[in-house]
Design a protein around this nucleic acid. Structure first.
Lengths: 210, 210
DNA sequence: ATGCAAATCACCCGCGAAGGGGGAATATAT
DNA sequence: ATATATTCCCCCTTCGCGGGTGATTTGCAT
């Protein structure tokens, strides 16, 4: 029984077996209705607006335009539709690009069918479903390196430098003398073994000191 | 039956009812052993190293030293122990501070008991369990504003500026003339209505253009 | 109490970078 | 065709940046 209260789901996935498998599973779950399945972004573009899904399951490895590149385009034509990435890839770059482009969640393809249905529900409730390993990568992207060679003040000043502020402005905002700031910066450069703002920022970011 | 193969769990939580409730639930789950329960960080500090838990459930609202401040201290004395934050608060600042200090996951207290046990297991398997709403906040922290007034090239150059690179260096790395970079920066400043690097970076970051 | 690290301030130098004004020639879409 | 993006060119002044060498004070730990 399909009703209008159902969550409308669309699937963009090139592998027919997987695509129809998901469609069958989701379509036969109470409360869900599959309004469209497409083998590529190009195919989806033609019909997805009038199919008007609430949630799109999007594969990243698609022929033609990749899922990652399709994501911002889909968000543009369907701004209120939630997009769930579904992929075998767990590369950091892909994950962060997808999330930056407005993906609502990121699942790996080994996710069991019931978990995918649960994820769709979670997305509709304002959640952000992620596979365990993905969540770990996302969390560790926040983690700072606690064994920094920099002192508290040095770290603080380096953070200010990273916002593009001049030494003078940093001095004013920290209520210390310009010479003090210069002194700290010199010490930072020595510790990080660099000779410029840009290199210090890069070194610090690479090592998660800031 | 408690064995050495069990996952050793410690609980730091000031509310005795909640603390003992969790301890009972986890302790009576096969495969888990509660090795310590403490009402505060100060109490935990005395015994937690020899109790040597695999996972700590950490409340944020503790008397004395808060859970957030306790987190880096705990990571220092037990570097290989996973810490799960358990709280009623869903403030962005708290969440990101906790994750930045090395929390392995972040659960809200309305999480059902079986989900908490599942989260502990997930942590041990290298996952990063989060409550749905938390995960959403974490994900949206990555999301860029797609309606930027800046062109692609301008965004690209502004990103380079935000890394502290000089205009000359940016020109070299993008294989364009210094004058072109200057031109782009002038346009960026006009569009963002600012008159300095620092203000441009701030404006762009506030609006998630970069 | 003594010692060390952290944080503060001082004055030197040379050079390049930053910010702002003007204009103009090519793409590249739509 | 027209707009926008991207590229390049010239002018100008001010100020910031990187580096050298030093001193002082504060606070924490042994």
């Amino acid at each position: 029984m399909k009703r209008d209260l159902d969550i409308h789901v669309a699937i963009i996935e090139d592998d027919e077996t997987i695509r129809e498998g998901y469609a069958f599973l989701i379509g036969n779950t109470d409360g869900y209705k599959v309004v469209g399945t497409y083998p590529s972004y190009e195919d989806a573009a033609k019909r997805i607006v009038k199919d008007n899904p609430d949630v799109i399951l999007l594969d990243v490895e698609l022929p033609g335009i990749s899922g990652i590149d399709a994501l911002p385009k889909l968000k543009k034509i369907l701004p209120d539709t939630h997009i769930l990435i579904l992929t075998v890839y767990e590369q950091e770059m892909l994950i962060f690009r997808a999330l930056g482009s407005g993906a609502a969640g990121y699942l790996t393809k080994n996710t069991p069918a019931d978990k995918i249905v649960a994820a769709i529900h979670e997305v509709m409730e304002g959640g952000g479903p992620m596979s365990a390993h993905i969540a770990r990568m996302v969390i560790s992207s926040f983690k700072r390196n606690e064994s920094t060679p920099l002192t508290r003040r040095e770290t603080e000043i380096l953070e200010q430098i990273a916002t593009g502020k001049s030494r003078k402005r940093i001095a004013e905002e920290l209520f210390i003398d310009l010479e003090t700031v210069k002194s700290h910066i010199k010490n930072i450069y020595h510790k990080l073994n660099v000779h410029s703002k840009a290199d210090a920022i890069k070194a610090a970011k690479d090592n998660k000191f800031i």
